[in-house]
Design a protein around this nucleic acid. Sequence first.
DNA 1: ACCTGAACACCGTTCAAGT
DNA 2: ACCTGAACACCGTTCAAGT
Lengths: 231, 231
Amino acid sequence: MRAKASREPLSRERVLTAAVALVDADGIAALTMRRLAANLGVEAMSLYYHLPGKDALLDGLVESVFQEIGAAVARLGPQDGMDWRTRLRQRFLAAREVMLRHPWAPGLMGSRPTIPADVYAYYDGILGTLIEAGFSYRIAHRALHAFGSLPFGFAQEIFSPTAAGGNLEVEVTEAEMAAMAESLPHLTAMVAAEIHDAGDPTLGWCDSQVEFEFTLDLLLDGLDRLRRTSV
Amino acid sequence: MRAKASREPLSRERVLTAAVALVDADGIAALTMRRLAANLGVEAMSLYYHLPGKDALLDGLVESVFQEIGAAVARLGPQDGMDWRTRLRQRFLAAREVMLRHPWAPGLMGSRPTIPADVYAYYDGILGTLIEAGFSYRIAHRALHAFGSLPFGFAQEIFSPTAAGGNLEVEVTEAEMAAMAESLPHLTAMVAAEIHDAGDPTLGWCDSQVEFEFTLDLLLDGLDRLRRTSV
DNA sequence: ACCTGAACACCGTTCAAGT
DNA sequence: ACCTGAACACCGTTCAAGT
């Protein structure tokens, strides 16, 4: 895990790249000034020359992930011929691919008190798409809120990605299953009725691609209906 | 802030109550084993007799908030005559009132690796309401995901409640405003078009009651349309 | 049964100092 | 300009010990 010593000096960018790699590999709890420095072949105090402190490091992590989203969206190319729903759908799905690579990012974003500046530009683009499609500012504003975290490629997860929900069936014994059927009749029936493909890459608790796209389309369709009736 | 010394012995419940009070008052970062103990008039090590460690304390905090939601929902009384949309709407709005009292809770929930057991029963009730209304298990399952955090009384907040978004206009100078109009034309126009009631109690970044209910109704209406067409 | 004191390993951060 | 060593205040947690 320790990077080979390099003679080129540190930089904010190198520090952030190493931090993303560290967190991807060992989780957010492993991100320590001392450990990050060690991975860079340097003392902890050296980091303070490139970043004011740990909060700035965490902000930088969020910024890094968002820039990755920005790059993925830019890679989609011009969207001239498309209607607004297709445009937004592509954006959000591109963001999702980035998030699948950094499952710690949603939790980190949710805990930061500041918003990286580039995010405003990102939202401005979404808003522009909506206005161009004929939405009023009022409805477009509410649409931004309704989208929630979808622009960042993840559906709502109230609890952490590593939560137990998805593995429910696996860890439960026969006796517990019977008790569950009694206390949680509807959930038990649902699990029985639904067969999930195991092992698909997911952000967590059943938050598979299918669920993500269902929520996305439910909102897009509902907004489109609003647009065509009242605007 | 220090509680008066009491002769009755500590208990898990007393510890959790004090922890909620501490976090309500001073924020989640102020929750320290040593500080919590001091508030209880006790040494830090005493807490370990009632809770295995800090993780258990954080889990207990989430559990406490959820039990408050459970109590608020129970206070709604029997829902016999109501249709499914009204039932869910009342539930989610009741949960929202609890969350407004504990603005740190969404962030904490998002960072916990485990789900309190009672939450399953809560979801089972929501699922039962959907099934009773005629939804298939497949659609009901997806509806649970689409709801996201609404059952817990908060709409998606990608960034922390204390984020800057809501105060954007206030902190911006004239020159910055002009620059903003150039780089963020649509957002600037939206802010100009929208007048927000200042000072309303909110979970954060424009997540006012109106936005919450808009998202809620958008999803409920969309689901209802699905129910009546394909089921 | 319930609480404590001393100690340990580990944080983030400061500051003066090195090169 | 860039990095370091020693030190500080503060963590969560252990363990043997008190009552």
